[in-house]
Nucleic acid binder design. Structure first.
Lengths: 201, 201
DNA sequence: TACTTTTGTTAACACTGTTAATTAAATTTA
DNA sequence: TAAATTTAATTAACAGTGTTAACAAAAGTA
């Protein structure tokens, strides 16, 4: 009897219709305003049906996070296969990563938990400039006393700051209670690489 | 008459008592569970009084964001003054930045909008490993064909990934509608620096 | 057709930020 | 000092949120 078969097919359709409605919500209003109620409203069912398909809201977000990482992996894999030389591949992967992030902001923000309010907030924090200035002046000094005295200090500041923030936030996102013995090695590695490329021609 | 004076002093005390109660909440339960109601409960006043001192919840968060950036700026400035050579200063600043982030996680997460749920979520996403593998294998290839064949590929992967994520998320947090003409230059700069330090001895 | 299982709905609970209306207190004026 | 006025604080509500228990309706089985 194909009736059990039809049922799991219907269940599957229901599931994807929930995800589609959710995704539509996200595209128009962002993650912050996604709600179970709105999804239920969009699919024209009552609220509790959603809990027959997903344990809770977090499970829905998890689903999209998985989707995001799978898409990103595909994109990176494709970029890699377009080239033969490993160092060129690394460059291509980097650009593909960048493009993915900005072409699919919604995915990226969810995947790495970038709470969107910070964007509006941080831009009205005058105190950030104080921190920025410490970094910039030092970089200017370093450039002045180097063999690359024509280097773009603002570009280099951005690179420096990005490396720092990237290291920290990746480290925070990953398993919290890891042995932090060799943690700072990553920092040391990235920073000495940056400084070398800054100072040495 | 010093009665108006006393009043603004009391108002100031009230304000800081709100911030103190909020901070205590954050330390024990994190940003996510901070609520106006809990603050009101802690200071033993009714809810609306808080709105006499802060326009809304966001304003309270903004206050702490400012505080965080000021503290970070101070820490970096101090680290800088401990050394004379700019390149050494850059290294010291990097370490100070790192230490601040992990010694004041609450501040850092608020400042850069690191939505905490992602931590729990991302760690149960198997698909992340697919992406990780694309990066790691490429880096292994690059190392194998380089003059640094003894380089730690896992360390280098972490550096690579962190740089990418840092670049992207800083770019996302900063003013959204900026001219994206020279945006990719930052990426190019950071990545070519990394690759150079990876391939060349 | 009668029974059982699955599916869906209503209504509520316990929260959240925010605000209008109202009462209590403090200060100023007569 | 007593009355009027301004300031401060409270209660109660609105409009949301995620989640779930109790119940009704539909579908499948005997």
């Amino acid at each position: 009897m194909g009736i059990a078969e039809r049922k799991i097919r219907q269940k599957e359709e229901f599931r994807t219709s929930i995800l589609e409605a959710a995704w539509l919500q996200v595209l128009t209003d962002g993650w912050q305003s996604l709600s179970i109620r709105k999804i239920a409203d969009a699919i024209e069912y009552s609220i509790p049906v959603i809990y027959n398909h997903f344990e809770n809201k977090e499970a829905i977000l998890l689903e999209f996070t998985k989707e995001g990482f799978q898409k990103l992996a595909d994109v990176l894999q494709f970029a890699k296969t377009q080239h033969a030389e490993p160092s060129v591949q690394l460059e291509a992967i980097a650009h593909a990563y960048w493009d993915f992030a900005f072409e699919h902001k919604e995915y990226y923000q969810l995947m790495f938990g970038l709470g969107i309010p910070a964007c509006d907030r941080v831009n009205q924090v005058e105190e950030m400039k104080t921190m920025t200035m410490v970094m910039i002046t030092t970089i200017q000094d370093a450039i002045a006393g180097s063999k690359n005295s024509d280097a773009d200090y603002f570009l280099k500041y951005h690179t420096y700051f990005s490396i720092l923030h990237g290291l920290v936030s990746i480290q925070m996102i990953e398993k919290a209670g890891k042995p932090d013995a060799g943690k700072k090695m990553i920092l040391q590695d990235a920073i000495s690489g940056f400084i070398t490329s800054l100072v040495v021609r």
